[in-house]
Design a binder for these strands. Structure first.
Lengths: 154, 154
DNA sequence: CCACCAAGTGCGGATTCCGTTGCAATCTCG
DNA sequence: CGAGATTGCAACGGAATCCGCACTTGGTGG
C-alpha cells in the first residue's frame, strides 16, 4: 500500500517473517516465544509489517489445482517509458506478476487463464494492444516445479 | 508434498481458499460464516487442503525489502529430459521458482540473491554447470511492479 | 440391511487474540 | 539540559477463537 519505507528491517522482524513464511497461521504467542518478544509486541510488529506493505500473509496455491488450466509468462519488448506499461499490465486481473527487467525482454508478465481461448484473448486483445508494446513472446507453462516463499529462512 | 490429487476441488473449498487469499489469518469462524459451514468443518477442510499440498498459508514479501538486493529470471535452453534439470534447479535454495515452458526457453528459474557476486556465482557455478543446460539468459529485475496471489477472487 | 467411511455439527476447556494501560528508552527542540 | 512527545514493549483481563472429541448424517458397497 505504501512506499515510504527505506527501513532496513531489523533482525527481530526478519525472524518474525521467517516464522510466518513457514506457517502463516502460527500464533503470536508461539512466534513471541521463538523470537524473544511478548505476544503483544509480535502482534504490533506484524501489523506494522502488513500495513507498510513489506509483508502479507495469504494463501497460495498451484493455480492448476483450482481450475486455472493455462498459465504463461509473457516476455514483452517495448518502446519508451516502461513504468506506464507496467502499470497498465498490473491493472489486468489475469496478470498476477509484473516485473521490469534488464535483458532481452523489457518486461515480464505472468498470466493466469482458464483456457486457451481466455489466454489468447488476454495476450492479443489486452496486452499486445497496449501503447508502447512492440512485440511479445509467450512462454506457456508446461509444469510448475517449484514455488517457494521462504526467502530469509536460509 | 503429495501428488495423488486429481480431485477437482468443490466450490466450498474454493470459497475458503478465496477467503484466505484475501487474508491468511482470517479466523475459521469468520470463514465459516462467509461460506456457510461450521467453524470445525472449515478447520478440517483447511487442514486437508494444506496436507494435500493444494494450498499453503504463508507470509510473502518483496525480497528487496528484506535484504535480497538482486533478483533475476533465468531463461534456460536445454537438451534431453527437462524434468531432471527442473529437479536440480529446485534443489537450489536461491531458486524460488522453477517452471518448464513451451517457448523460446525450455525452463524458467527465478533467482533471489544478496548481491551481484552472489547472483553471478549461482548462475555460472550452480546453474550453467548442470548437465543438459546448453545456454542461459539472465533477465535482471529492475522493478517488481505486481505480485498477487488472489486467483479465484475474480 | 448393516457396517463402514467421509464430512459436518455441537460442545466445553484451553488457548489465543485484542484493546488498553503503564513504563522505559529515545528523540526533539527551545 | 530537560520537559514533552514518540516509540516499542510488557502485562493483563475479557472476549473470541481454536481444538479435540463425541455425536449425527449421508452415501457406498458387500
Amino acid at each position: 500500500m505504501s512506499k515510504p519505507k527505506p527501513t532496513p528491517l531489523d533482525d527481530v522482524s526478519k525472524a518474525i517473517i521467517a516464522e510466518l513464511q513457514e506457517d502463516g497461521r502460527r500464533s503470536y504467542a508461539a512466534i513471541g516465544k521463538a523470537v524473544g518478544l511478548s505476544e503483544a509486541a509480535v502482534r504490533q510488529r506484524v501489523q506494522r509489517l502488513v500495513d507498510s506493505g513489506v509483508m502479507q500473509v495469504v494463501a497460495v496455491t498451484d493455480p492448476t489445482e483450482i481450475g486455472f488450466a493455462r498459465q504463461a509468462m509473457i516476455g514483452i519488448h517495448a518502446t519508451g517509458e516502461l513504468e506506464p506499461i507496467a502499470d497498465a499490465l498490473a491493472e489486468l486481473t489475469e496478470v498476477d506478476y509484473v516485473v521490469i527487467t534488464a535483458g532481452s525482454f523489457d518486461l515480464l508478465a505472468e498470466v493466469v487463464a482458464e483456457s486457451d481461448d481466455h489466454l489468447l484473448e488476454i495476450i492479443s486483445r489486452r496486452i499486445r494492444t497496449l501503447p508502447g508494446v512492440m512485440s511479445t513472446e509467450t512462454l506457456l507453462y508446461l509444469k510448475l516445479r517449484k514455488q517457494t516463499y521462504a526467502w530469509g529462512v536460509r
